[in-house]
Design a protein around this nucleic acid. Sequence first.
DNA 1: CTTCCACCGGAACCAGAGGGTC
DNA 2: GACCCTCTGGTTCCGGTGGAAG
Length: 413
Amino acid sequence: MDDGPDLSNNPYGSAVDIFADESVLKEDWQPAELPERASELEEIRNSLAPATRGVNAHNLFLYGKTGQGKTVAIDHELDLLAEYATSTDDLELSVVKTSANNQSTSYQLAGHLIKEIRGSGPKPSGIDQQSMFDLLYEELHDLNKTIIIVIDEIDSIGSNDDLLYELPRARKNGHLEDQWISVIGISNDLEFRDNLSPKVKDSLYDSEIEFAPYDATQLTSILERRADQAFYDGVLAEDVIPLCAAFAAQDEGSARQAIRLLYKAGELALNNEQDSVAEVHVREARDILERKRIEEGMRSLTNQDQLALLSVVALEVAGETPTRTRYVYQKYKSIADRLDTNQLVERRVRDHLQSLGMQGFLIAESRNRGIQGGNHYRFELKTDLETTLDILREDNRLHDLVADLSAAVNHSQ
DNA sequence: CTTCCACCGGAACCAGAGGGTC
DNA sequence: GACCCTCTGGTTCCGGTGGAAG
């Protein structure tokens, strides 16, 4: 009967067992198999295969929203290729893998790649673009014969795509002699391809693979595989996985999101000392994650973004949404006045409203009322009003203003 | 068929900060 | 210290636009 000290008063350790192996649900967990992406994997393999035959692999573009397995898929295939390379003398492979996140120009991306290849040291800059490219070629020269450069989030360089034109032609232009280079770009932005300059498309484009969003069925089987390892048997109520899958499918079809949801639901059950995960936990988890998403988004807003958002929020409170730009701007001016911040010109506020729309805080509907109304947008708040007010109130400078608005909400309720 | 509303959004330009090299 | 680079967040200016009204 006596098996160890009495822990009944110790706050750590739980009375219930939910997770068999929690790490399976973490962000950095790499699944060993991707049956839902079998055909995409095969396409990648076909594109890489020329490398094993002593020429350069095809350039390749992967498109798809976040959480569609693009990065996992490319890692998976490159691992296999590297494994093959070590087992044979035919292939001397160097893989340079980087994320273009925050590198918004070719110049910066080249600097970033140099830093990546060197493995340490500062990022070079302060020289002109061609010298930067030359520096990059020097670094590439020291690598193996077959070079594959993987650039994640390649869309962040926008239309400044000179480097993408240069790289695939390096050999032809005599910058490299005995080496084969190919580029794999990964993009979340489906329009990126269309905005590339024609000469880049020409030099870079061998093949592209689109990762379509997972549907609910696929998400369900992905979740089931994870859940098998992550949870103890019989812990999940029957409808938990389908519900997580359905929520995620409704949104972006992201596996990452679905897994987060399942993980959070499990944690909630655990924290409440319940021995099984039920539908309520999933719903609660969704609310928590949604709130977190808004909070994180708002934290990155600039002052002026906040003011523009606040203008729409104020109109929302007054029940005057959706509303056109003119009234938002009027409200904006009075708010800026009250807070004693500088007022921007209308054109700029329009930009801020536009970007709030893109970030999912506002709904911007374009319409046209002809001779009485012309062409204009109508804005309304997309996020939950109460939550938005809560979060905005945390900002000291906005506190009083938001408090007034909240009072108005409660009054009308 | 034309007119015209009232905003849309591209373009050119600017100041200031911040990253560097030589 | 002179000089080179880019980026952010702003301004000014202005031609463009689609559909209701006449």
